[in-house]
Amino acid sequence: MTGELNEAVTAAQAGDEEAFRFLYRTLQPGLLRYLTALVGADAEDVASETWLQISRDLPSFTGGEFRAWTVTIARNRAMDHLRRQRRRPSLPVPVQALSELAGDADTAERAGETIGTEAALALIATLPPREAEAVLLRAVIGLDAETAGRVLGRRAGAVRTAAHRGLRRLAAMMERHDAEDSPAATEEVRPPRPRGDRHRQAPRAEPADG
């Protein structure tokens, strides 16, 4: 898949429109999902900006992981966007997703069975930003930990930790929902709450893991 991608990049750099279309179709879903976690409803706008810059700067792409290159652009555009909105980039979780999640137990329920893409992303977006980004870069964009670390400006180990925590948190959320269904379960019965709550839960869920 990476080889195919690199071929398309080379062809697109030579001006092949179909190759560029292939790149778009391959990368856009992941970028959009990642951006949705970062900027919420404005993700599509930021994605357009991203593709504008990708097409402009494509000739200057000299090699390496193209996914990482594009996602770096997307991330920068998202940060610009957040800065423009005078929002703190550290609080990128779309409020809508949060409230929906808190009020709607169906999300977690669906997550337990065959979860929809939308619901899955909404759930991931409720994670603390670092964890959400790590999970999305790893699982949705498809970067390895080293590359994701380069994108985020952090070490690979930090990305692994964040992703690990994020997954555990996600599992806990879904488990919590299961626990609601089965009264026998005693642990973490409360429905998902905005972050402050989860932060308090975190040590309980994962006391030893740094």
Binding site: T114, I115, T117, A120, A139, A171, M174
Partner: peptide
């Protein structure tokens, strides 16, 4: 595995 299912959904093919 619900978690695997969740991640798979998140990484599902383009809509």
């Amino acid at each position: 595995d619900p978690l695997a299912g969740l991640l798979a959904a998140a990484a599902a093919p383009a809509r």
